[in-house]
Design a protein around this nucleic acid. Structure first.
Length: 199
DNA sequence: CTTCAGATGCTCT
DNA sequence: GAGCATCTGAAGA
């Protein structure tokens, strides 16, 4: 399948967040490609969203990446020890992004198990195998992503997203976003998208 | 299945 | 100095 181009990300953030479900996220390293299917996303829109790091046009050293071109990678450190992966959306200078909250591996489970637990896949518990990438921090750890990839883009670097059809029989569930209770009315916005069913 | 505490360091006031 | 777009392991139901 073809890589998604910049025009894909230059659109309305809610549309991009919804349409990223089912797409293939590719993490390139020297020796191998780690691929996975995106199953959970959230939209963050600076213009109207108190949960967005760039709410109110805020520009700081951390948030200036959100003003870069669509398809730019935004990775930040959270809770002192985990990273969150985002893709910048909307036209340039319109600060917004999609948080990639979850995925399921498409092969190379050994590399992912190594990144997450420093163990072989066959030595993981059944629980661990079922939850390899079902959270934003887990996903970044599984793919070996840190702020080293911040401000790169999806068009020729270590990361890209390939087009892919939605799996047959899958459904999209829409809910409010996770972990932003401080954001007042924005905490209720139905801006989280989860791919359910046969993935 | 659920709740709970603790880890840990950057970011912005 | 306060707070954070989280995860883990332990313990209880």
């Amino acid at each position: 399948m073809k890589p998604l181009d910049q025009a894909f990300f230059a659109r309305d953030t809610l549309t991009v967040a919804r349409e990223l479900l089912g797409k293939t996220l590719v993490r390139r390293t020297e020796d191998r490609d780690l691929m996975c299917t995106i199953t959970e996303t959230e939209a963050y829109i600076g213009r109207c969203d108190k949960a967005c790091h760039a709410y109110g046009g805020k520009r700081t050293a951390r948030t200036q990446v959100l003003y870069a071109g669509p398809g730019t990678v935004y990775i930040y450190l959270i809770y002192g020890m985990y990273h969150c992966l985002n893709f910048v959306t909307e036209p340039r200078d319109e600060p917004a992004a999609v948080l990639i909250r979850g995925a399921v591996p498409m092969g190379n489970e050994d590399s992912i198990a190594q990144n997450r637990f420093s163990r072989k896949y066959q030595d993981l518990s059944a629980y661990q195998r079922k939850h390899l990438m079902d959270g934003p921090g887990k996903l970044c750890l599984a793919l070996g992503l840190t702020r080293a990839q911040n401000a790169t883009d999806l068009f020729g670097g270590e990361l890209c997203v390939l087009d892919a059809p939605l799996p047959d029989g899958s459904q999209i569930r829409t809910t409010k976003r996770i972990g932003i209770d401080y954001a007042q009315e924005a905490a209720e916005f139905p801006w989280r998208f989860v791919l359910e069913g046969s993935v």
